[in-house]
Write a protein that binds this DNA or RNA. Structure first.
Lengths: 218, 218
DNA sequence: GTCTATACAAAGATAGAC
DNA sequence: GTCTATCTTTGTATAGAC
C-alpha cells in the first residue's frame, strides 16, 4: 500500500510529540535532550530535526498540536452530560479540573502548562500563541457559565462579560492548583469550591433565604 | 581592619545572589550559566562553587535569602499605612501586587517566582521549603483580612479560616498575573478588583442597600 | 524519512597558585 | 576566598548512507 510510508511518518511525528509532552512535563524542557525524546519515541535524534527542525520546534509543535487546548478541555469538563446529573455544578467543575492535573496521570498537564507559560512569557513568538489559547479558554468557560442560569437576580452586581468571568475563574483554578501542587493539604476541596462559588454565584442567592428577600414576589 | 576580608566575602555573596536573581528571572535558570552569574557579579565562576557549591545551591540560597518571602512582601503591601488612607483597600491590594510584578522592575519577581515554583514542584528538597513560604503568605494575608472589619454580617456565609481566605486570594492574584503577563489587556484592573471583592466581601453587603435588609436594625 | 557517525559548542565542575 | 586554567560531559546540529 502507498499508505505505509505516510503512516510511518505520521506515526513518528505522533510518537515524538507524545514522548516530548511526557518528558518535558516530568523533567522540564531544558533538562531533556532531543536525544532523550527520540529514544523515548524509539527513534533517533535525526528524526527530531527532520520533523521539527530542533528541540524548540518540538515545543512549538506541541503547542500547535494542542490547538483546541484549554478551550476543548474546558468544554469537555463543562459539558452538560458530564457523567452525572450535576448535583452541584461548581463542585463538578473543581473535581474535573483537579483530576485533569492529578499527579497520577502520565503526562502531567499542570507542569507542562507552566513550562509552556514560562517560555511564552519570555518569547515574542510563543507569547501571542499561548495568549490566544488562554483567551479561548476564558471565553469558552464564560459562555458556558452564561448558560448555567439566568437568575431573577440578574444583572450581576457588577456586570461582567462572560469572558471576564472566565478570566476570574481560570485565575482561581490556576492559582489553587499551584498551591495544591506544593502542598495538597493546603487546598482542600471545600475551600476551592467555596472560592468558585464566591466568584460564580450571584451574591444574593448564596446567603439569603428567598423568603427574606424584600424584593422577591412583590 | 579585620573586617575587610569578611566584608568582601559577604559582599561577594550578595553580589552573586543579586546577579543570579536578575538573570534567572530574565532568562530562566537553565539558560543561565554559573559563569554568566559570576560575570554579572564581577567575580568568577569559582566563587560560585566556593559559596554555594554549584548552580543549584545558588537557587537554594536564593530561596533562603527570601526567607521572609511572600509573607513580608504581603505584610508591606497590606500595611495599614500604605501611603494613603485607603479609599478602597481591595483596589490598593491589587495595585500593590500588580506593581510588584510590573515588567519594568529589574528583577522580575513573577517570572522568578514561577521559576522557583517549577523547580520546587519537581524537587523533594525544594518543594517543602517553597510550600512553607506560600503557607506563610496565605496566613499573613488571612490574618490581615481578618482585621479589615468585623461586620455585623459575620460570621461569613461559609466560614473560612483566615488562612483559607488567604489561599483563595493568593490563588486569584497568581492566576490573574499569569494571564496578564501574556496579555495585559486580558486583565483590566476593573476585573481584578471585582474578583477580589467577590472573594473578600461578605456577599450581603455588596449588593443590598442596608435599608432593604430585613434583618438589620431590628 | 530515517539512521549512523561525528563535528562543534557550551556548561558544570575541579585543581592548584596566590 | 578568589582567580586562572583545564578537564569532562553533555547536548545541538549536520553530513552522508540507505
Amino acid at each position: 500500500m502507498a499508505r505505509t510510508q505516510e503512516d510511518r511518518k505520521a506515526d513518528t511525528r505522533r510518537r515524538l510529540l507524545d514522548a516530548a509532552a511526557e518528558l518535558f512535563a516530568r523533567a522540564g524542557f531544558h533538562a531533556v535532550s532531543a536525544d532523550a525524546v527520540a529514544d523515548a519515541a524509539d527513534r533517533t535524534s535525526g528524526s527530531v530535526y527532520a520533523h521539527f527542525g530542533g528541540k524548540e520546534g518540538l515545543l512549538l509543535a506541541l503547542l500547535d498540536d494542542w490547538e483546541a487546548g484549554i478551550s476543548e478541555q474546558m468544554r469537555a469538563v463543562l459539558a452538560p452530560d458530564h457523567g452525572r446529573l450535576q448535583p452541584d455544578r461548581v463542585h463538578t467543575l473543581w473535581d474535573a479540573f483537579a483530576a485533569s492535573t492529578a499527579t497520577g496521570r502520565t503526562p502531567d498537564g499542570l507542569l507542562l502548562e507552566h513550562e509552556l507559560w514560562l517560555h511564552a512569557a519570555r518569547s515574542p513568538e510563543l507569547g501571542p500563541a499561548v495568549a490566544t489559547r488562554y483567551a479561548a479558554g476564558r471565553e469558552a468557560m464564560g459562555r458556558h457559565f452564561a448558560t448555567w442560569d439566568a437568575r431573577p437576580t440578574d444583572p450581576a452586581p457588577a456586570d461582567l462579560a462572560p469572558g471576564e468571568l472566565g478570566t476570574l475563574v481560570l485565575a482561581l483554578l490556576l492559582g489553587l492548583e499551584m498551591q495544591r501542587r506544593l502542598d495538597p493539604d493546603a487546598v482542600p476541596d471545600r475551600i476551592a469550591v467555596e472560592g468558585l462559588r464566591r466568584l460564580l454565584d450571584s451574591p444574593v442567592k448564596a446567603t439569603f433565604d428567598p423568603a427574606f428577600d424584600p424584593q422577591s414576589d412583590r
